[in-house]
């Protein structure tokens, strides 16, 4: 069974531009895959995520996540999806530790247990000395690491990342990226990683989906094979060509 399936999915928002944000999207992601999604700004990547999480309903088509409809059977996927957002989205009134434990708290995990799990994750991300600090006194990179810890702490089956490192410097971004890759592989999760950096996509994905506006998959590359065939520069160029080929 595929972990994530989109079949002919479209999403059009009422009002606004009246255009489609996602149009006729087909997507199949298997257990344990780490898929990178690249695409120009505004091509519908975040909309795809929100559909997958079940925050919005598709206008057309069918979405299945672990066999459930994420919007209609909202509660069925409780604890199954972890999300690292583009910005850290920490609760400012909670310490780093309490932020990491937040997802577990919403799942009604006992306090001692969730704090222990939270401490463990902070430690894995090198933040144990900062556990009692409020988000405002952490640096941007630390905050983003706290939000990664929060997503992993609930031990979800699927991890979604929406350009989580784009606001960070290259070095920090690269180290968090390999950290993320390692965590996903170690814990046998299925990961979808949205980025607008082609280099990052090649770095992180087993498979790359190139999105074009309005939200559909314009091309797909299996990374190891494509790298062997085209070389890194060649692959980058191919992806660039696809991205530039369609839409604005």
């Amino acid at each position: 069974m595929k972990v994530v399936t989109f079949a002919g999915v479209s999403k059009r928002f009422d009002g606004g531009s009246h255009g489609y944000a996602v149009r006729n999207l087909d997507l199949h992601i298997g257990q344990g895959e780490l898929v990178a999604v690249v695409g120009k700004t505004g091509c519908g990547k975040s909309t795809m995520f929100n559909l997958l999480i079940g925050l919005i309903a598709p206008t057309d088509g069918v979405i299945r996540v672990l066999g459930s409809n994420p919007f209609a059977d909202f509660d069925a996927l409780a604890g199954k999806i972890g999300v690292v957002f583009q910005n850290d989205r920490l609760l400012p009134w909670r310490s780093a530790l309490d932020n990491v434990a937040y997802g577990l708290e919403l799942r009604h995990v006992a306090k001692e247990r969730r704090l222990a799990v939270g401490r463990d994750w902070l430690k894995r991300l090198g933040l144990e000395v900062h556990s009692e600090k409020y988000p405002h006194s952490l640096s941007g990179g630390m905050r983003q690491r706290v939000s990664i810890a929060r997503a992993f702490a609930t031990d979800p089956e699927i991890l979604l990342c929406d350009e989580p490192f784009s606001a960070l410097d290259e070095l920090t971004g690269a180290s968090l990226r390999s950290e993320f890759r390692r965590l996903v592989q170690e814990t046998h999760k299925t990961g979808i990683f949205v980025t607008h950096s082609i280099g990052e996509a090649i770095d992180i994905g087993d498979r790359i989906l190139v999105f074009c506006a309005p939200g559909h998959v314009a091309a797909e590359f299996a990374v190891p094979e494509a790298l062997r065939e085209l070389g890194e520069e060649g692959l980058k160029q191919r992806i660039l060509d696809v991205m530039g080929g369609t839409g604005a």
Partner: peptide
């Protein structure tokens, strides 16, 4: 913050938990 609401909702909290924590 709409961002924080989305973040919370991604954990699929009960209504009461959302009120209490956010």
């Amino acid at each position: 913050s709409k961002d924080l609401i989305e973040m919370s909702m991604s954990f699929r909290p009960s209504k009461w938990d959302l009120v209490r924590t956010l």
